[in-house]
Structure formats: structure tokens, C-alpha cells
């Protein structure tokens, strides 16, 4: 193989790669935050007594999980304006990723809620709390701590999905990698480095979250 490795152009553009990575992380954090709210609502919806609510929640989850995220991204950015909702690239992507995250997280939360012992709610009723307060002060906090490992996995997945923002020219890591690749022809170096940055970041996120989990988990 006749190839002259030259990483100089990569180093020269380190600021682009760094800003791309930073934006990717930011997009992931914001989306998972909003996604958690959506997911919680959907999870309670799936477990609701009312058939309509259950159906709505299930349809939402099924629709989003089975649709390719790229289609969702393009739909939100290009098609929604026709309905009057015209968003810039980044808000549009955040909206898409949040709705996407919400569908996956709702399943995590639903499983977490189902796994809680019934006695928790009954104990809350016994001390005179309302259903809403029980959910807010007992059910959700306990459930969240129990599902921390799943949440971590989902966050890492979402971070990888931010690479798709490049499809609508959001200046995150993959977008810049492609730019550098096309402009410099340093193909192998670019993609090696891009891939390494993603893998390393995923590892870093995983270990940070694991430490977080250990601190927040309910002592056993």
C-alpha cells in the first residue's frame, strides 16, 4: 500500500474538530434532557388506565422507534416548514433528537416503573400524599436511580446519533471530518481520527456516568 501518512492537516484543524465534538456533546445533553421529560410523560401514558392515552403513547413510541432517524431529521428540517414550523438547523435537530430520545427513554422508564414494588405507592397513600406527589417525590426518584445504567447507554447512543446532524450541515464533528477529508484528501488520517475521537469520547462518557451511577445509586 502506497500511502504517505500525514497528520499535520488534522492537527491544524484541531479547533474545528474540538468545536464539532463540543457541539455534538451539547446537542446530546440538551436532547436527552428534553427527551427525559417526553419519555416520562409517554411512560406514564403507556401505563395509564385510559385506553386513549395508552394508545397515543404506544403509537408515538412505535412510530418513532421504527422510523429511520435520518428521515425524521429531514422531515423536521425540510417538511415541517410547510406546516408553518420553520426552524433553524440546530433547533430543528434538537427537536428531532429529543423526540427520538423520548421514544427510547419511554421504554426504559416504563420498564423501570413496572419493576417498582406496588407497596411504594401504597405507603405513600398511607401517609396521605396525593397521587401526583407520590409520583414526584417517591416513584420517579426511585425509578430514575434504578434505571441509571440504561440511561447511560441511551445517552451514549444519542451522542453517536448526533453525527447525523452533519446531514443537514450542522457543524458538529462528522461534518468537519468530512470537510477536512474533502479539502485535504488525507482520507485515512481523517477518518481514523474521527472514529477514535468518537470511541474515546464514548469510553469517557461511560466511565464518568458509571462513577455518577455509583454515587447516585440507592445503597444496597
Amino acid at each position: 500500500m502506497d500511502y504517505d501518512f500525514n497528520f499535520a492537516v488534522i492537527w491544524r484543524n484541531w479547533d474545528l474538530l474540538a468545536s464539532g465534538l463540543g457541539l455534538g456533546l451539547l446537542l446530546a445533553v440538551v436532547s436527552i434532557a428534553i427527551g427525559c421529560v417526553i419519555g416520562l410523560v409517554a411512560a406514564f401514558g403507556m401505563l395509564s388506565k385510559h385506553r386513549v392515552l395508552r394508545w397515543l403513547a404506544l403509537s408515538y413510541v412505535s412510530a418513532i422507534r421504527n422510523t429511520p432517524i435520518l428521515v425524521l431529521i429531514l422531515f423536521t428540517y425540510f417538511a415541517l416548514p410547510e406546516l408553518g414550523v420553520a426552524l433553524d438547523k440546530i433547533p430543528s435537530f434538537i427537536l428531532t433528537l429529543s423526540i427520538y430520545a423520548g421514544a427510547y427513554l419511554s421504554e426504559v422508564f416504563r420498564a423501570g416503573l413496572v419493576a417498582l414494588p406496588k407497596g411504594l405507592r401504597e405507603a405513600g397513600l398511607a401517609i396521605g400524599l396525593t397521587e401526583m406527589k407520590i409520583k414526584a417525590y417517591i416513584i420517579v426518584p426511585v425509578m430514575l436511580r434504578n434505571v441509571l445504567p440504561s440511561l447511560s447507554n441511551n445517552f451514549i447512543s444519542l451522542f453517536k446519533d448526533t453525527s447525523l446532524a452533519a446531514a443537514i450541515a450542522v457543524p458538529e464533528l462528522t461534518f468537519y471530518a468530512r470537510k477536512i477529508n474533502v479539502e485535504s484528501f488525507r482520507v485515512i488520517e481523517t477518518w481514523m481520527v474521527a472514529s477514535l475521537i468518537y470511541v474515546a469520547t464514548c469510553y469517557a462518557i461511560a466511565s464518568v456516568l458509571r462513577r455518577f451511577e455509583a454515587r447516585l445509586a440507592i445503597p444496597r
Partner: peptide
């Protein structure tokens, strides 16, 4: 497996697309 699972599939596709032609 760790390398492939830590890389977004989009990056994998782009890498295969660009890199392979360069290495012949």
C-alpha cells in the same frame, strides 16, 4: 467490537466510502 460499536454508523459508512478507494 468496541471500536465498531463506539463509532457512529454514519462515520463507518463515510470511512468505508472514502478510505477504500484510496487504498486501492
Amino acid at each position: 467490537t468496541d471500536f465498531l460499536r463506539g463509532t457512529p454508523v454514519f462515520v463507518l459508512i463515510l470511512a468505508c466510502f472514502y478510505v477504500l478507494s484510496v487504498v486501492g
